[in-house]
Nucleic acid binder design. Structure first.
Length: 413
RNA sequence: GCGGGUGUAGCUCAGUUGGUUAGAGCACCAGUUUGUGGCACUGGGGGUCGUGGGUUCGAUUCCCAUCACUCGCCCCA
């Protein structure tokens, strides 16, 4: 009863401030690229996800929190952001005003076994660039990701892996070749990969099983199946990265799990989070709109990053604003201090009151809330119309007239 | 969903080869300082030994189940 549900957590202030910091940094940079903040409901009709993510994807088959409302409508807590945003675009008729660039942040839900960096309610920041087919938009989206990671001080902890899945024609051709190849060795594949052969053959490529990898080494390459259009598209994405000197490595085994991806697939990976290597990942999803019933494709590119994972990687502590601690002594001072505190707050100064306890414990409290200074107002000071201002970092203290407090505080910061 | 590890105070952990009142450090509270924090000293409060059941004269300790966390697999951010 007093325990949170498996895989969900409270975010106490020291953690919450770090989440908030990550979101603010990402939103700031997304703004510089013209992405606008949007938010969509955290639950949707189940079809929004089950029809678009792929009937055989793990997310749909075993990881969605599905429930029915009182009318028997099937609903699902969103397991990812992209499908909901595409639904949002179509619902609001915004396909007539393309392109659209969106930034979002919020909780996602997957019914998984929790691990470090993996929770059942987790949080993502993400961007979607919808209605733009140029490979320049892929390059730009990846550059934004690189800038966000850089602003968070994580560049030296991540590596960019990138690959191309090709357009639909290339991808389907390759899938055929791959199934043909692996079918000959079916009994030699790991049980997991035998399953993949049926559901998602591309996934066999990044199997961790050594025997699978031996077979993969001789398998036909994805690159070999790319048609000229796909090859050219990929080359132009890479060119963007080269021009901006963003380091990457082409990973021919990088594939995406969800059905709607094509062309560019990329991941920023880390080795600092145990089994969870992907920190930020995304790709192009030109066909998603079609899968949602729209009559033509809406070429789009996007990515999402796990806030939990980013937070675990942050080195430096995130500090909040340092308040002024107000300490009134005696009832008359308490009355006086109410107005003073309000006045200071109206001047954009953070003020924390410590109205009870002995002076010593109130000083300690000021320390605990990381106050920059305390303002002590007792009987003597009240009569003189002054207060004692003490800086906590160096212990300096002086008695100043109440009328000069704002100026004195401004001099401190 | 599969396999391994862990679960003792708010936190980090000792401990009990089954036996009276379960310990430490940090944190918290109070005092040394009747209006001055961070340091030091002294004292104090705080524990269903994850939960439920079983074995036993007796279980925090052994057994089973369950929950949570954790490591790996699957998958993914």
């Amino acid at each position: 009863m007093l325990q949170t549900f498996r895989g969900t957590h409270d975010h106490l202030p020291d953690v919450a401030v770090r989440y908030d910091y990550i979101i603010k940094v990402a939103q700031h940079w997304a703004g510089l690229y013209g992405y606008n903040l949007v938010s969509t409901p955290i639950f949707e009709y189940a079809d929004v996800f089950s029809r678009t993510l792929g009937d055989t994807s793990d997310i749909v088959t075993k990881e969605m929190f599905v429930f029915e409302d009182r009318h028997g409508d099937k609903l699902v807590l969103r397991p990812e952001g992209t499908a909901g945003l595409m639904r949002c675009l179509l619902s609001n008729g915004l396909m007539h005003q393309l392109p659209q660039k969106y930034f979002y942040a919020g909780p996602m839900f997957r019914y998984e076994r929790p691990q470090k960096g993996r929770t059942r309610q987790f949080h993502q920041i993400g961007v979607e660039f919808m209605g733009e087919a140029s490979p320049l938009s892929d390059g730009e989206a990846i550059t934004l990701a690189w800038d966000v990671l850089g602003a968070l001080g994580l560049k030296n902890k991540v590596a960019l892996h990138i690959n191309s899945l090709g357009d639909t024609e290339s991808r389907q051709a390759y899938r055929g070749l791959l199934v043909e190849y692996f079918s000959d060795f079916k009994s030699e594949l790991s049980p997991d990969s035998q399953e993949r052969l049926l559901k998602n053959p591309l996934r066999i490529l990044d199997s961790k099983d050594p025997k699978d990898q031996a077979l993969v080494a001789k398998a036909p390459s994805l690159e070999g199946s790319l048609n000229n259009l796909s090859k050219d598209f990929f080359a132009r994405v890479l060119e963007s990265l080269d021009l901006l000197k963003i380091p990457y490595s082409i990973n021919p085994r990088l594939v995406r799990g969800l059905d709607y991806y094509c062309h560019t697939a990329f991941e920023f990976v880390t080795d600092t989070l145990g089994a969870q290597s992907a920190v930020l990942a995304g790709g192009r999803y030109d066909r998603l709109a079609l899968m949602m019933g729209h009559k033509e494709p809406i070429p789009s590119i996007g990515w999402a990053a796990g806030i939990e994972r980013l937070e675990l990687m942050l080195d430096q502590p995130v500090l909040g604003a340092r308040p002024l601690s107000l300490i009134p002594i005696g009832e008359a001072a308490e009355r006086k201090v109410l107005g003073l505190a309000h006045d200071l707050r109206l001047s954009n100064i953070s003020v924390v009151m410590a109205p009870s306890g002995n002076l010593k414990s109130r000083m300690k409290y000021a320390n605990k809330v990381n106050a920059q200074a305390v303002l002590i107002l007792g009987e003597d000071e009240l009569q003189k119309g002054t207060a004692v201002l003490k800086e906590l970092d160096n212990g300096n203290q002086q008695e100043i007239p109440l009328s000069q407090i704002k100026d004195a505080l401004k001099r401190l910061s």
